[in-house]
């Protein structure tokens, strides 16, 4: 086997794969590098260079064209930090609510017996197929009737009970919470609620982590819902603020790029720490199904 792995053809194939993957990575990274450089360039020379402006200064750069003014304006004058904090708030509250609601419901549908279970399961599985844009108009009308338009609840509540979350937790329960364990807890006299929190939830931890991340990401990156339900700019999450910025400061490319980088950086940093769990959790369902 070792000899096979190190045979010349294998080595050539490995080298070729490495070169092609490295090239793909460079193409993938280029927009990030370009974004970082663009956010540091003054607008007067924005289009003069591809990345940073060249010149006679140290490192062969024109340092007078490089500036952090865009970031200063963004955070001091335009209160962009507020949008970032709001995005953290919307995303964490929604993902906590959704994960708890979906984990409880998914577990109950997978392991408990009660009337109406079949009907609820069927509806949940069907709901996964409904595309979100269908709910835009009636959802707006509902929030209007509930006097919830332009409130934070309008962003959080409609996203707090996603059907596919229940589906994922139902699958996770079936594959990682053995019925015998629940049965023995029951014989020991533990109620269904206690059994869920003490026995099932710890076993569901990988899915809890994955689903928290999926929901957090989904809310952070959602543009259309807050765009439709919010009016007041002081309530905007970053996805809407960035669009606003683009509309108002149309020619101010540096400012737009600084805002975009500030908005995507927290997620990329989070991903850098949790990438293994995230990718494993995301693909597990698809490959097993």
């Amino acid at each position: 086997m070792i000899a096979l792995l190190n045979s010349p053809t294998r080595r050539t194939r490995r080298l070729l794969a490495t070169i092609l993957l490295a090239a793909a990575c460079i193409v993938t990274l280029l927009p990030y590098v370009w974004l970082l450089c663009a956010s540091l360039k003054s607008n007067s020379i924005f289009f003069d260079s591809l990345l940073l402006p060249g010149g006679d200064g140290p490192l062969g750069l024109n340092w007078s064209g490089i500036t952090i003014d865009h970031y200063i304006r963004l955070f001091r004058d335009l209160d962009f930090g507020r949008s970032l904090v709001l995005s953290v708030f919307y995303s964490s509250v929604t993902s906590l609510l959704a994960t708890l609601a979906c984990a409880m419901a998914g577990y109950a549908l997978a392991r408990l017996r009660f009337r109406g279970k079949w009907l609820i399961t069927t509806i949940v599985l069907g709901a996964v197929l409904i595309p979100a844009p269908l709910l835009l108009a009636p959802g707006y009308l509902l929030l209007y009737k509930l006097s919830l338009l332009d409130t934070m609840a309008a962003v959080i509540l409609p996203a707090a009970a996603p059907a596919f979350g229940v589906y994922l937790f139902r699958q996770a329960t079936i594959s990682s919470v053995p019925p015998e364990l629940i049965e023995s807890a029951r014989i020991d006299g533990a109620g269904d609620l206690k059994t869920f929190f003490v026995i099932a939830l710890p076993l569901l931890r990988p899915m809890v982590g994955t689903f928290l991340m999926i929901t957090f990401l989904g809310v952070w990156n959602n543009f259309i819902t807050p765009q439709v339900v919010l009016q007041d700019p002081t309530k905007f999450p970053v996805a809407v603020s960035i669009a606003q910025l683009r509309g108002v400061y149309y020619q101010d490319y540096g400012l737009q790029m600084a805002g975009t980088l500030a908005a995507i950086f927290p997620l990329l940093a989070l991903f850098a720490f949790l990438q293994r769990e995230f990718i494993a959790g995301l693909t597990a369902g698809a490959v097993k199904a």
Partner: peptide, 22 residues
């Protein structure tokens, strides 16, 4: 009652913000 206690948070939000709008 226990299965329904587990189902209620999901069903309440899902009913109001998904089933009704559909």
């Amino acid at each position: 009652a226990a299965p329904w206690i587990l189902m209620t948070p999901f069903l309440a939000i899902f009913g109001v913000f998904f089933i009704y709008p559909v």
